[in-house]
Amino acid sequence: MLYWAIVCLVIAIVAGILGFGGIAGTAAGFAKILFFIFLVLLVISLVANAVRGKGPKI
């Protein structure tokens, strides 16, 4: 999911440079939403592993 957030961010940057403001804004908004979903899933995963008593794999 983080991969897709980065892809949308790159699309937004390229569209902004080329002057496509509407597409750039939409892609940036989509990247922001995907990034926050990634963060929520990361926190849920960390909490679930902590509750089960498993630490991160090193």
Rank of each mutant, 00 (worst) to 15 (best):
L42T: 08
F35T: 03
V40R: 01
F38H: 14
A24R: 05
V51Q: 03
I6C: 07
W4C: 05
L39Y: 04
V47I: 08
C8H: 15
I6R: 15
F20E: 06
L41P: 00
G29A: 15
L42Y: 04
V40L: 11
I44D: 03
C8Q: 15
I23N: 04
A48G: 03
K32L: 14
V43L: 13
G53K: 04
I17N: 14
T26K: 12
T26C: 13
L42W: 01
A50T: 05
F35N: 04
V43M: 06
F20I: 13
V7N: 06
V14T: 10
V47R: 05
F20G: 05
I37S: 03
N49C: 10
A27Y: 04
G29D: 14
G19M: 11
L2E: 14
V51M: 10
V14K: 07
V14D: 12
R52P: 01
V14P: 03
N49Y: 04
L42G: 01
V7K: 06
A24Y: 04
I13F: 09
I58P: 04
M1F: 13
A50M: 03
I58H: 00
G21V: 13
A24F: 05
L46I: 05
K54L: 05
L18P: 03
A5F: 09
F35V: 03
A50G: 00
V40H: 05
A15H: 06
K57Y: 01
L34A: 08
